[in-house]
Amino acid sequence: MKFLRPENIKIRETSRGLELTHAGLPAVRVRPVKAFPMKEPGKYIGFIDESGKVVGMLEDTGGLDPETGTLLEQKLSGQYRFPDICRILSMNMRFGIAEMKVETDENEVAEFSAARDDIRWFGKQLFIRDADGKYYRIEDYRNLDRKSMILLERFI
């Protein structure tokens, strides 16, 4: 495993999946993953081959050619989609399980249930995992409106 130079990377979508070419070497079928999807989602992207081995790491997507950059971003955003909660519309607590109705940055109203164990903090960032394993993010809960903040404090 090594850190790859962004300018030497080419990624393309094939019928067999995503293929990575680095510095003219033969293409490898890979799966991109984020090393720190919550703490530092924009950096440290790893490419894992079919055997589960990390074939290379990319520190930053900055220097990638536009086509590769867009494709990689597309793949990763599908995989690590953490909708931002903008407002909590309602919350019911029962036996430590919260049933929440929230408004996200995608202008959607989502309803989910989560237990207290499903809360994760990264500094001021808060992640809540619903029963299906999907994460919702709150960048800084103190910046939420007062009602949402009060509702959330019953849970966290």
Partner: peptide
């Protein structure tokens, strides 16, 4: 990486997190 655990960690759903 030096501890030979990097590949395992990267295969976890949330990586190092």
């Amino acid at each position: 990486r030096a501890a030979m655990i990097h590949d395992f960690i990267m295969n976890l759903p949330e990586g190092y997190d």
